[in-house]
Design a protein around this nucleic acid. Structure first.
Lengths: 205, 205
DNA sequence: AGGTTGAGCGTACATTTGTACGCTAATTTA
DNA sequence: TAAATTAGCGTACAAATGTACGCTCAACCT
């Protein structure tokens, strides 16, 4: 890559990072202005357009990038689970860790999921869908579920996890412990319930 | 109530209604400006301050009012359930109906739940908490659950329902049918799983 | 009846925003 | 080496926003 393209990439990163850094509990992506982001990135407002068509395009980039980060981290966590122990427990613990080290990635996903732009909502949904289908396939193979049931189960699990994540963002470390415990309990409920429903169906056939 | 206070109340209502009417899939509360709301309500921007300290105060009013509306409608639905039939099925159907007739109430609750103002998040959480604890008490008595388990179960149910609501907002009527079916399946999973966990605990004791 | 209150208005202003336009200077290409 | 490309800048402007201030006049109180 030439010197020129390299510098451009660097500035682009500065923009994305600037935007992520400005996110907080009090500041959502849609409340950021193009000028603010440019200022934080150390470039002139008008230079922003050399990299993104508008703020929307930047936001979508962030969603995609954030989703990728998340999936990579969760995958690493799953490897830990393969060493043995409760899959649910380990996954929840991993999730909390990921959330703690990337709060702003979660913020944008959680907020824009119910946001004002259809493109954003779709992008977030796509990211969540990754999690769901990955999990559904796993369950279908592992626990011999009907595809339909596996899907419903996976979706329920993911929703519960993400929701807990939203609550966790506002919490202190100590409170998070209790949250994680309750989440584990809820996930077990779903898993147990799905198993029972599956068996009932099998018996009927 | 005097003529004066009556007129004031009328204008206040106009403001609240104006704000609710401006909400849509593309427009969140936090993207509304004081001036827009005043314009829609037919008053001068500066007159807004005769009724609310700022937009935040208006928003909190809307959350409270919306939550109340929701609970009232769900209560009515529950009476229908007492006539017999599956509690889960009837509740879900009621919920979908409520959602269809008050989409904007849901929009503000769902969006501000992950919103940018702590006061808003707390207000929404309070509303959701109403649902959860009402349901937890019901389950605790009806199905003889441990308080802890009843709480976890109720919370899981409510979260799944609200989440489905968020998806439903973007859907056509026909798609909603499938969503409702899957939601029912998920709720049964949770209920069945909670029952199984409860029995396991009872046996151990 | 006469004084007080307060809802609603119009004017005004400082800020902030997105973005159009044209320049510069360094890199890339030919 | 000469020409072309382009990242980044500064200037500029129209639009919109929140809100301070002071006025009016109908309703209210005594």
């Amino acid at each position: 890559m030439g010197v020129r393209a390299q510098q451009k990439e660097k500035t682009r990163r500065a923009l994305v990072d600037a935007a992520f850094n400005q996110l907080s509990a009090e500041r959502s992506f849609s409340s950021l202005s193009l000028r603010e982001v440019a200022r934080e990135a150390g470039i002139a407002p008008t230079s922003f357009y050399r990299h993104f068509k508008d703020m929307n395009e930047l936001g979508l980039t962030m969603v995609d990038e954030g989703g990728l980060t998340l999936r990579q981290m969760m995958r690493k966590g799953r490897q830990r689970a393969e060493a043995g122990g409760s899959v649910i427990r380990i996954s929840v613990d991993t999730f909390i860790e990921v959330l703690e080290s990337n709060p702003n990635v979660f913020r944008i996903l959680l907020h824009e999921r119910s946001g004002t732009s259809a493109a954003f909502r779709a992008a977030v949904e796509r990211e969540i869908e990754h999690f769901i289908s990955e999990l559904a396939h796993y369950t279908e193979a592992q626990a011999k579920r009907t595809p339909e049931l596996a899907r419903a189960q996976a979706e329920a699990l993911v929703i519960l996890v993400f929701n807990a994540g939203a609550s966790a963002l506002d919490m202190k470390r100590s409170e998070r412990k209790a949250l994680a415990d309750q989440l584990v309990l809820q996930l077990r409920m779903v898993a147990t319930g799905a198993e029972a429903l599956q068996q009932k169906m099998d018996n009927r056939a």
